[in-house]
Simulated assay, not measured.
Amino acid sequence: MPDLLQTLVETRVRRPGAVAAAAANRRRPTSLLGAHGRLMMVAADHPARGALRAGDRPLAMADRADLLQRLVLALSRPEVNGVLGTPDVLEDLLLLGALDGKVVVGSMNRGGLAGTVFEIDDRFTAYDAASIAAAGYEGGKMLTRIDPDDPATAATLEASGRAVSELAGHGLMAMVEPFISHRVDGRVRNDLSAEAMIRAMTVAAGLGTTSAHTWLKVPIVDEMERAMAATTLPALILGGEVSADPDKAFASWQKALALPTVQGLVIGRSLLYPADDDVESAVATVVGLL
């Protein structure tokens, strides 16, 4: 780990232009789908929103070298054909040569910091459509939480709609992650009922001037079949928190993959920080679902 950190820091200090050069020289994927016919992505955009917890480890994602090693290990499997992250993480992976042939999606709005009074105000503080296109990435992702009691929701919806339109103008995927959310005891909680997911997805599907390049990133909910019947847009299942019962989580993902709109998985902490800390085994199990 010290060698990895030292190499990255020295490159950033002495050759900051290496980031743009690595992006320009990256071998692009020929399709959003892997050889297995799905999009299997690993997500690592949590730290930029101040969300560092994984399972019972409150600062699991705070060690950047450890996070990068876990990401490189996951991406070394050919079945894992994509990654989602903010500029700092993706640029470290670029410098490590880990993104050749992978679908790269830039995380765009990280302003709704976890645990803050302004959490629903999901401002676009990271990538925009122009920078994603300039880097040669395949798309951009936006978190779109809808709190009926928080007026900041309106600005988030407007910004998400604009981002969908701008990404589509570049011919790039717009990955929208919608939730109906409420404050409970002062903290933002997502409603994971089928009814709430249906409402959130139908709102997300209508964002922007075209839905031609829009994909949805959605959680597992009860009555998943009914929820996914609400849209014709392609969807990816997100992993969410590290599960105390990983076998149950794996089974729910496998069941969801049988639905016609579900085109793959976007798994973050459940894959990178499994309860037994065996990343290689977790990756093997997840790709086996495909």
Rank of each mutant, 00 (worst) to 15 (best):
A114D: 07
I132H: 10
S243K: 11
A196P: 04
V188H: 08
L67M: 13
G171M: 06
A282M: 12
L236C: 07
D128W: 01
L207M: 10
P58G: 04
L90G: 03
D191T: 00
R77V: 07
A205R: 12
V83H: 05
G17I: 08
S243T: 10
L96I: 00
L271Y: 05
G50D: 13
R110I: 00
A152N: 15
A43Q: 02
S181C: 13
A282W: 11
L93C: 08
R27W: 01
L33Q: 11
S131D: 10
M175Q: 06
S193V: 03
S193P: 01
T156S: 13
I237G: 02
L207N: 09
V286I: 15
M61K: 15
V19Y: 03
A155L: 03
S31C: 09
T261P: 01
V105G: 01
D88M: 11
L172Q: 07
G208E: 11
R183A: 01
T210M: 08
G136I: 05
A135T: 07
V89H: 03
I146N: 00
E10C: 09
L192E: 06
D247A: 15
G37C: 08
N109A: 03
G239Y: 09
G85I: 00
T116L: 02
L71F: 09
V262K: 01
A35L: 13
S181H: 07
A256G: 03
A51D: 15
P151V: 15
G85D: 06
Q254M: 09
G161A: 08
I132S: 13
V262E: 00
L257N: 00
S270M: 09
T209Y: 04
P246V: 13
G264Q: 06
A74E: 04
G288T: 07
L67V: 11
G136N: 10
A227W: 01
G50I: 11
A163F: 10
T30C: 01
R26K: 10
A174E: 00
K102A: 11
L157D: 10
K248E: 13
E280H: 12
A35P: 13
L75Q: 11
A154T: 13
T86N: 08
N190C: 05
D88A: 14
L289T: 11
T285R: 15
A235G: 06
D121M: 04
L4K: 11
D185C: 07
S160T: 15
S281R: 15
L68Y: 06
V262F: 05
L271D: 06
G268N: 05
V164P: 12
I180R: 09
Y137E: 13
A129F: 02
Q6S: 15
G55Y: 05
L95G: 07
A155N: 14
L32S: 12
E79Q: 11
V188M: 07
A174I: 00
P219Y: 12
A152R: 15
A200M: 04
H182R: 15
M224K: 06
H182V: 05
A204L: 00
G161E: 10
M41L: 14
E91L: 00
K248D: 12
D121F: 14
A159Y: 02
P2W: 10
A98N: 12
